[in-house]
């Protein structure tokens, strides 16, 4: 295993946005191997857009995004497939396949990308769902379980192939505090014991303080990264009053 500090994702000089409309200009940052990295920002700040660029769904308007050394922006088919296999993604809404049971959702990547036989895949799928507390719901369809459970099943699916990098879009939004804390413990365990890297888009400050190694904070008005570092330090001693305000959950002062 490489030294824990070398970057596994390098976002270099990226202009984020859609259809020629830039939301963020010239953003650069590194995500280090094995760390829990959180992207923070107000609503509409471009967090989700940035995430879409990083997972290769939409190309950025400019710049490069290296995933473990290869640029996902310019990669051709074969290389792109291999880059996609390096990470798992949990989408904000869960994005489970509605016609498949929870277990079948988790089994799908295992069936497509490994040569394991049926029983073995079934066991792995059950274990992934047990990790998120859903082993008693393997045969349920997504529509038959609650929103929070769908989200947890989506995390299980993202972890199915034990990817090196896991992208989570608002993982704890909509979860009760106990489940959310259980999810934090799971993320910490995977990061610390397996060396998995987590890139999390989140708003949940308690969870961020509990698990994040490093955060970046982006802002639409200033069109870029306004703070980077340890969330506790930023809360206590950031030179930027807006950043301190964000971490302390103080309301915005509206002009009179």
């Amino acid at each position: 295993m490489s030294a824990p500090s070398d970057p596994i994702i390098r976002v270099h000089d990226v202009t984020a946005g859609y259809d020629e409309t830039a939301i963020l200009d010239h953003v650069s940052f590194d995500v280090r191997r094995g760390e829990i990295f959180v992207i923070l920002g107000g609503s509409g700040s471009g967090k989700s857009t940035l995430l879409k660029h990083m997972i290769g769904l939409e190309p950025p308007l400019a710049g490069s995004i290296l995933i473990d050394g290869d640029d996902i922006v310019t990669a051709e088919d074969g290389l792109r497939q291999s880059i996609l296999r390096r990470f798992g993604v949990m989408y904000q809404s869960g994005a489970l396949f509605g016609s498949m049971t929870l277990a079948e959702n988790v089994r799908l990547p295992l069936e497509e990308f490994t040569d394991l036989d049926d029983d073995e895949i079934a066991l792995i799928a059950r274990m992934k769902l047990a990790m998120v507390g859903l082993d008693a719901f393997t045969g349920h369809l997504p529509a038959e379980v609650s929103g929070g459970m769908q989200k947890r099943a989506a995390i299980a699916r993202a972890l199915a192939l034990d990817p090196k990098i896991v992208f989570l879009d608002e993982p704890s939004a909509g979860l009760d505090p106990i489940t959310s804390a259980g999810l934090d413990a799971l993320i910490l365990r995977l990061a610390r014991n397996l060396g998995a890297t987590f890139v999390i888009v989140s708003h949940e400050l308690p969870s961020i303080f509990a698990i994040a190694d490093r955060v970046i904070m982006i802002d639409r008005v200033r069109r870029g990264i306004v703070a980077e570092g340890d969330p506790r330090k930023l809360r206590d001693s950031s030179p930027d009053p807006w950043v301190r305000q964000f971490f302390r959950r103080e309301p915005e002062v509206l002009p009179a």
């Binding site: 277990a103 059950r126 274990m127 047990a130 082993d135």
Partner: peptide, 12 residues
């Protein structure tokens, strides 16, 4: 983190 005996059964 796993209960091996529990995983042996299909609970659903």
């Amino acid at each position: 983190q796993f209960d091996v005996a529990r995983l042996a059964r299909d609970l659903d």
